[in-house]
């Protein structure tokens, strides 16, 4: 029995969506736009065990980054409870919270935007550990050199600025900055998406190496199912703010249960499928501003019509256990 590092219970995150400039402009021309609420994360339960690599997958805008930000405390949830090492975060002392925030680090989707362009790499990596008393200021250079080496960066480059590095090197700087505060848990948000294929493999290998060396736990957010399958022990599939399926990685990829997971896997391009006959998606991809009733997936689901009583349209299917370590939210599993 593994112990949980993190547990989310019934977590929601809502945003009041303000109109952007283009939106306000269009409204002034008569387009019927109003400000709305987005349920970016909608009543999610999620447990991550020590040492586990959990892959988080879903379409753009389904709430992956938002969930990741709630996990590391960059967003305060609108609803629900978060437990860290079994302890309710709401009941923690300020010191306990600070310790948790160091232990759980996030690596961001956009390596350009997340590095301060006016900071030298030695400060990007070395500042937080000094501030938090992990090292003494006088040991900073040596410590930065050690962390840089660990992520495959030449310590001689520590006085450079982010723009003087390639995309792959910047990704490494982002990883080094997170590692510098000695975390146990990393949320990697599309950490390799912006990289070239040959560089992606190098950075993925770095994640694999770090996991082994430092005994890390990962929440690995990616829309690349090949990458997720390779790295993850367990996979969580989200659709419009909700978790619709979770399963051990191998089982999820070989026997997906949820119709959305099945549809998603069918679309994954593969090197071995040549001159494929692509098929049109049924229905429109709905907006998170205005999700469909009942099961969010029902307008696109090929099975919705075969569930009696129009249930898919009227009733939200709950995430239910369907086998050992497997959960799915679909009325077909009744």
């Amino acid at each position: 029995m593994s112990t949980s590092l993190l547990e989310l219970k019934n977590i929601s995150k809502r945003f009041e969506k303000k109109l952007d400039i283009a939106g306000r402009f269009a409204r002034s021309l008569g387009a019927g736009l109003k400000e709305e609420t987005v349920h970016a994360v909608d009543h999610v339960d999620l447990t991550i065990n020590k040492g586990e690599v959990v892959g988080l997958v879903g379409e753009s805008g389904c709430g992956k980054s938002t969930l990741g930000r709630v996990v590391v405390g960059l967003h305060q949830q609108s609803e629900g409870e978060k437990f860290w090492r079994g302890k309710n975060v709401a009941a923690m002392t300020a010191d306990e919270k600070r310790a948790m925030q160091l232990e759980a680090q996030m690596i961001f989707q956009d390596p350009y935007a997340s590095l301060n362009p006016r900071y030298r790499v030695e400060n990007i990596i070395g500042e937080a550990p000094v501030v938090h008393g992990i090292i003494n200021a006088k040991d900073k250079s040596a410590y930065v050199a050690e962390v840089m080496q660990r992520v495959g960066l030449d310590p001689a480059l520590s006085r450079r600025f982010p723009h003087q590095f390639s995309g792959g090197q910047r990704a490494r700087i982002g990883i080094a900055r997170a590692l510098a505060v000695k975390p146990n848990f990393l949320v990697c948000d599309e950490a390799v998406a912006a990289l070239d294929v040959s560089i992606q493999a190098q950075v993925l290998n770095l994640f694999i190496k770090l996991r082994e060396e430092l005994n890390l736990t990962y929440l690995f957010i990616s829309h690349d199912l090949g990458v997720v399958r390779h790295l993850s022990d367990r996979v969580v599939i989200m659709y419009l703010g909700r978790v619709v399926e979770t399963a051990p990685a191998d089982e999820l990829f070989t026997q997906p249960n949820h119709p959305y997971t099945q549809g998603l896997l069918a679309e994954v391009p593969s090197l071995t499928v040549r001159k494929k006959d692509f098929v049109a998606i049924k229905g429109e991809i709905p907006s998170p501003l205005n999700p469909p009733t009942g099961c969010h997936f029902h307008p696109r689901c090929p099975h919705a019509a075969s569930v009696p009583g129009n249930k898919c349209k009227t009733e939200q299917p709950l995430l239910k256990q369907i086998a050992v370590n497997r959960f799915s939210a679909c009325h077909l599993n009744q």
């Binding site: 294929v197 040959s198 992606q200 493999a201 993925l204 290998n205 694999i208 190496k209 090949g226 990458v227 399958r229 390779h230 790295l231 990685a249 191998d250 593969s270 090197l271 071995t272």
Partner: peptide, 12 residues
Amino acid sequence: SVPSRNVKGRPL
């Protein structure tokens, strides 16, 4: 280097 051509979990 494509993940599907590598052993799961091992370096690519």
